Computed example of a mutant assay.
Amino acid sequence: MTSKVEFRDLRRIFGKTVALDGLDLTIEPGEFVALLGPSGCGKTTALRCVAGFERPDSGAVLVDGKDITDVPANKRDAGMVFQSYSLFPNLNARDNVAFGLRVRRVPVAVRRAKADELLELVGLPTHADRFPHQLSGGQQQRVALARALALEPRVLLLDEPLSALDAKVRVALREEIRRLQLDLGITTIFVTHDQEEALSIADRVAVLRDGRLEQVGAPAEVYDRPATPFVAEFVGTMNHLVGQASPEGTVTVLGHTLPIDGPSPDSPEVDVLIRPEAVQVTPAEDGEAEVLVASFRGSSVRLRLALAGGEVLADVPGHEAVRLAAGTRVTVRLVERPVLVAPRTVTVPAPVTEPADAV
């Protein structure tokens, strides 16, 4: 059975800190929604309000139309997986998975069979008799996931469950979580500050900032059509380029005239937000830009370009690496698509790339 979860004007304040400021969000039955945002944006508080570990100051949490705001945590039909594995060190994997069933006084044979079934489901059929210290971090988190599923909850809550794992294990386990969620059809809320995680596995992504919902939509929509400059900046990488806006709803930047996505700004001088993949480069001896750094990323290369007006990031296919090494002169073109603009800041910081191997 899957359930519909609703946050209705949810507010939670800790001293002078507003953790949730009128959160309204509906999660449909069987949907996988990622709550994404920086530390302190309210995403974990929202999750804890569903679990019953946190009580909002106002507003309500509804499951299938029923207000559960005042229902004790142990009476809510929700399974939660934490960032820390939270396994009992004195119990083996099977007994950890079956712990909730034991509390409910389920017969030994039944709970043992259920635990073995779930360990099979999460890919650990041969690890039932191992204790937590005999398991890797990824294996421990799989046991924690199986334990959350043992009580057959209507809602699965995941609070940054992958952040303590190394990169390769994190990718494998997030794909496993998505597979399980699809197989079981369980309504899932996944909290993360990692945009790649959110975009890769969620049906919809809800971006939070200072306790408010900035945007909610399918991953492609949030990435390609950010509703606000904050979403554009937080989800993915953005270039900030100086442009001149016109009353006709266009902006001129780097010699290109592009349509503005949204209303025209009051001031003609604006910051134009452009994704690196929307910057196209071609080697040319008389090009207006120079490649400062070429960072190889496998299927793509991220270029840091020096232009007369500052620096720009561009993403190009990986096979272009050889002819776009540092020092290469290039011409720059922008993909003709609507762009988001923001009020011009006094100082525009240079774009920053993630560490990578330079070509």
Rank of each mutant, 00 (worst) to 15 (best):
H319M: 09
L324R: 00
T353I: 12
G287V: 05
A321T: 03
A308F: 06
R337W: 00
F296N: 03
E354Q: 08
A314T: 08
T345N: 01
P343G: 10
T347E: 11
P338S: 10
T282L: 12
R344C: 03
G287A: 06
L292Y: 08
L303C: 08
V330E: 01
P317W: 11
T353M: 13
Q280A: 14
A356S: 14
V279C: 02
A356L: 05
A306V: 09
R344S: 04
V281D: 03
A342K: 01
S295M: 03
A294K: 04
G298K: 10
V293I: 14
G327R: 07
A321G: 04
H319W: 14
V352F: 07
P317L: 10
A321V: 14
A326K: 14
D357I: 14
S295P: 00
L324I: 09
P351F: 06
D315E: 15
A284G: 05
G287D: 06
A321K: 07
G309R: 12
R329P: 03
A306R: 15
L313T: 01
R323G: 14
R329Q: 15
A326S: 15
D315P: 05
L324T: 07
V293D: 08
A321H: 09
V301A: 05
D357A: 14
E336A: 09
L292R: 15
V291K: 04
S300N: 12
P349G: 11
V348G: 00
G298N: 10
E320A: 15
H319T: 09
D357Q: 13
V330F: 07
G287M: 06
T328S: 13
G327N: 08
V348L: 11
V348Y: 01
V346F: 00
V316N: 04
T328A: 14
T328C: 09
E290V: 15
A289T: 05
L324Q: 08
V346W: 01
A326I: 09
E354K: 06
